[in-house]
Nucleic acid binder design. Structure first.
Lengths: 128, 128
DNA sequence: CGCATTGTTCTACACTCTGTAGAAGTCAAA
DNA sequence: TTTGACTTCTACAGAGTGTAGAACAATGCG
């Protein structure tokens, strides 16, 4: 279970960006300003959403296990369960695992990795 | 654009398994027998689907660019556009690219790779 | 050639997921 | 206790997916 909708993704991006836990209101404001002053580019929003909308999304993300909230404080504070990097790496593993011949997939994967990344990988594999 | 439904996935698996192009009827039969004699396990089907169902799914997969069909022959013959390995590797790249700090993701990724896989990677990176 | 058979496309519907938010309920401070 | 901030419930529309009947096309047989 993985895939996120556009807004869900945008919210996760915000949570991952500012590593502090954030309230629904904060997030709503940030959503409104994110990629502000972009003609349209790749960016998403620029629109004022209702707080309830953000809360709904946060609840769904919580249910998916991507977000957790501090219920103690009055405006609940939300934060990502794992870092973007961890999450992404985990996703990659999930994808990798979806094929029977993992080694073959890795071969193709490595085949189309940039030079820099190949270098990184070599380094990482070196001291294991 | 990536994610597949359960049935779509099952069909792709069949197309990837027997590398020959297959007809909708063949696929329907295979879907009925796939993981036959499984109490319920992880497997999917065991159910006789209508051929039209399979055709619909195939059309959708075609639209997604995952499948192509020979229109010449009377029972159209369908096949996967790219191998499971290529497809999966591409997906992995997509996921990797979804994070800003690819190197960091790779670090986490490598961190949780099996020994065998690490060995494979070393070999692959060696002769690049 | 006309018809039966086999195969393909169109249309449709139910269900889930996602975006979106109002209505209703809760809690704490003044 | 009333009010204002906050949360939860409920709802709905639109996309994607599973599922298939109805309608349309081609192809071989008599």
């Amino acid at each position: 279970m993985a895939s996120l909708g556009e807004l869900e993704r945008a919210v996760m991006d915000l949570l991952w960006a500012g590593h502090e836990p954030a309230t629904a209101n904060t997030l709503r404001d940030r959503l409104a300003t994110t990629t502000e002053a972009n003609g349209d580019a790749a960016g998403h929003e620029g629109k004022e959403l209702a707080v309830t909308t953000v809360l709904t999304v946060l609840s769904r993300l919580e249910k998916k296990g991507l977000v957790e909230r501090e219920r103690g404080t009055r405006p609940h504070r939300y934060q990502a369960v794992s870092s973007r990097e961890d999450h992404t790496a985990e996703l990659m593993h999930e994808v990798l695992g979806s094929a029977p011949d993992r080694e073959a997939v890795l071969a193709r994967f490595i085949g189309s990795v940039t030079d820099t990344e190949a270098e990184t990988l070599r380094k990482l594999l070196g001291h294991i």
